[in-house]
């Protein structure tokens, strides 16, 4: 549904996005992660047809964005970071203005606007958008992004101004959209936010895609390499005896707890050995790299 090929954007001699190759399948909820200034927003601006790439190309639903931005805009929705509205108009009037660009009838517009305002809990709000709180603006931003019932939704830092209740409602909304088969592209620098809703992620750093795939897959790819070794955490109620197995490389012991580095997953054999010695196993698991640590290490690069 979304594809970029060697996508590049240079601003005043500085490369903001550097040869980005990305692919997001239809119906995916994709998290676009990266520290501030990594090039996430610039990528979204190119994907939404608001700026032209310096090099490469990007396609949404098979349409090359730079060649036919209007056609792309008709099938996408975009929530910009720190979204803004016309302060002299109500939320309903703002949505009405945007909706007129889609060539719908007045009746269709009215129904869609009412539906969207209800969805973001702004129905019945009569005050002007200039008097809205940041959270209300963010919710109206979600409504304007969905005013055309888009196939693809681009959300740039969507929970930035939301309170916990608003953030929970946003997650429910994304789940619902995913259930309807829509493609959602969420850009954020907050891992927990992306983790909560996204099935796949791409990690951007200094304009380059560092990794793409499932969150665990990306974390494993980026984790410090330990060859083919498997790290097994073992904890027993009693003092841990010496463990012997031809697959074991080394053991870090700490009383009743140990981290066993082995050539393969030998948890079954270890459990059998400990059970035969009458020991009570409290924990036995393969140690996965800590996602937060892995991502933070990339952010700090």
């Amino acid at each position: 549904m979304i594809r970029t090929e060697n996508l590049t954007k240079v601003y005043n001699g500085k490369t903001a996005v550097d040869g980005l190759d990305l692919e997001v399948e239809e119906g995916e909820v994709f998290g676009f992660l990266g520290p501030n200034g990594a090039g996430k927003s610039t990528t979204i601006l190119m994907l939404t047809g608001m700026i032209e790439p310096t090099g490469g190309r990007c396609l949404v639903d098979g349409i090359e964005v730079a060649k036919d931005p209007l056609k792309v805009k008709e099938i996408i929705g975009y929530l910009p970071e720190d979204v803004g509205f016309y302060g002299n108009m109500t939320g309903e009037q703002n949505l009405g203005y945007f909706a007129r660009f889609y060539g719908t009838t007045a009746k269709e517009r009215k129904e869609r606007i009412a539906e969207m305002l209800e969805l973001v809990h702004l129905d019945g709000v009569t005050q002007k958008a200039g008097e809205y709180s940041r959270g209300m603006k963010q919710r109206l931003g979600l409504a304007q992004a969905m005013i055309n019932d888009p196939k693809v939704l681009f959300l740039d830092e969507p929970t930035a101004n939301l309170d916990p209740e608003g953030a929970r409602e946003y997650r429910d909304l994304v789940e619902r959209l995913a259930g309807e088969g829509k493609t959602v592209f969420v850009s954020s620098h907050i891992l927990s936010e992306v983790r909560a809703v996204c099935r796949t992620v791409g990690l951007l750093a200094k304009g380059k895609l560092v990794a793409q795939g499932t969150l665990d897959g990306v974390a494993r790819t980026l984790a410090p390499s330990d060859g083919d070794a498997v790290r097994i955490v073992v904890e027993t109620r009693e003092h841990l005896p010496d463990l012997e197995d031809p697959a074991i490389i080394d053991i870090e012991r700490n009383g009743t707890r140990a981290i066993v580095r082995a050539k393969a997953d030998i948890r079954d054999r270890l459990a059998e050995t400990l059970f035969s010695q009458g020991l009570h196993v409290r924990e036995m698991r393969i140690e996965e790299p800590d996602i937060e640590d892995v991502f933070m290490a990339v952010y700090r690069r």
Binding site: T48, M50, P69, L70, K71, K73, E74, G77, Y78, P80, D82, V83, G84, F85, Y86, G87, F98, F101, Y102, G141, Q144, A145, N148
Partner: peptide, 14 residues
């Protein structure tokens, strides 16, 4: 200043 231009440009208008 109000960033409404970005919202407007995200809709199908040149």
């Amino acid at each position: 200043e109000s960033r409404s231009l970005k919202s407007l440009l995200s809709h199908p208008v040149y």
